[in-house]
């Protein structure tokens, strides 16, 4: 098969035809890869909604070297032979992305101190790396009531950025989905069909793909903060999924179970709800060892060692301290 030569931020790589600019940039490395909020490699037809991956194509191809007239979404644009792309080297792209981040944050409540996603939130990373430090928006943000979709997943519609990832999960992983996006424009929201509960064996993956804290694990709700937990690779024999997971532990106790995410924040393998919600005893798992965490991540800030004396759970503490 022919390999196409593409140059992204002055770095050249050869990729097979049909590769998108985003995927080619990811092959080069983190320094040139545009951020992506809606694109998910393992979900078909994902991408093209959030516009954070906009890049400038300064040379269309070897045969037609004209630049593309507008910034293009790199997750949906396939490479051409001899294409030249500018990402962080183009001030236009950096400025456009700043605008996109500002728009994404317009209706975001910024309740990070409460949100369980804080610390592993893609929107936090995105706005920290590419956004402005303050908001110019002066009006009321849209509000929604919290919805329980199923007994294991909490939906905070206020935090949602409408990336459609969870809808694609439901479409592609589960037979017969019961939730989707209803309404249009600024009143669009993720919802179930007349308060229907989502109870499917793979529905928990919606929590993993959600780039923000809109869909969170109810069994982990307000239990701890991600930077107090230590992630460990573990596996178990599961008849429904691969059983390869990450255990988030505080001392000996397992607080939550998630899929293994790669450096782009995408899970390697989908895991089933049994593994995710019901297996929280250490005896259920065979541990492989601590997970590698980026040194700059807040999760590696975890200073609490196993064996330290932890605060007891609220039930076991004397009443006076609960005030």
């Amino acid at each position: 098969m022919d390999l196409l030569k593409v140059t992204i931020d002055n770095q050249t790589i050869e990729v097979p035809a049909g590769t998108t600019i985003l995927q080619a940039a990811r092959l080069i490395g983190k320094e040139v890869a545009p951020p992506a909020m809606c694109f998910y490699t393992k979900l078909k037809t994902s991408g093209g909604y959030c516009r954070t991956c906009l890049v400038k194509v300064s040379k269309g191809s070897e045969k037609d070297p004209r630049p593309m007239p507008k910034l293009v979404a790199s997750c949906r644009t396939t490479v051409m032979d001899g294409m030249e792309v500018q990402n962080y080297t183009s001030p236009e792209v950096v400025e456009a992305r700043k605008g996109v981040v500002e728009f994404l944050l317009i209706n975001h409540p910024l309740d990070c101190p409460i949100c369980d996603q804080a610390g592993e939130c893609h929107l936090q990373d995105l706005s920290y790396e590419n956004g402005r430090s303050h908001s110019r928006y002066e009006f009321d943000r849209r509000t929604f009531d919290k919805i329980d979709i199923g007994d294991k997943i909490q939906l905070h519609m206020t935090r949602c950025i409408l990336c459609y990832r969870c809808v694609k999960v439901a479409d592609q992983l589960t037979p017969g989905r019961v939730h989707g996006v209803i309404n249009r424009g600024d009143v669009a929201e993720i919802s179930t069909y007349i308060q229907n509960a989502v109870d499917n064996e793979f529905s928990g993956n919606m929590v993993d793909v959600c780039p923000v804290g809109a869909l969170t694990d109810k069994t982990f709700r307000f239990k701890s903060r991600v930077w107090f937990l230590k992630p460990f690779d573990a596996h178990r024999d599961c008849d429904k999924c691969s059983g390869k997971t990450v255990l988030w532990k505080y001392g000996k106790e397992i607080y939550r179970v998630t899929g293994r995410k790669d450096q782009w924040g995408e899970v390697d393998e989908w895991i089933c709800n049994t593994c995710r919600y019901e297996k929280k005893a250490p005896s259920d798992w065979i541990e492989e060892g601590p997970r590698q965490i980026d040194r700059h991540s807040v999760i590696s800030q975890n200073m609490y060692e196993a064996g330290t004396k932890f605060v007891d759970s609220p039930e076991t503490l004397p009443k006076k301290q609960l005030s």
């Binding site: 409460i114 709700r221 307000f222 200073m303």
Partner: peptide, 22 residues
């Protein structure tokens, strides 16, 4: 206080612990 845990993670002496509730 919303028990966000930022004080505990900022604390160089690891003096602060907390348990959150809804």
């Amino acid at each position: 206080c919303t028990a966000c845990g930022l004080c505990a993670v900022a604390c160089p002496a690891e003096a602060i612990t907390m348990v959150a509730d809804e």
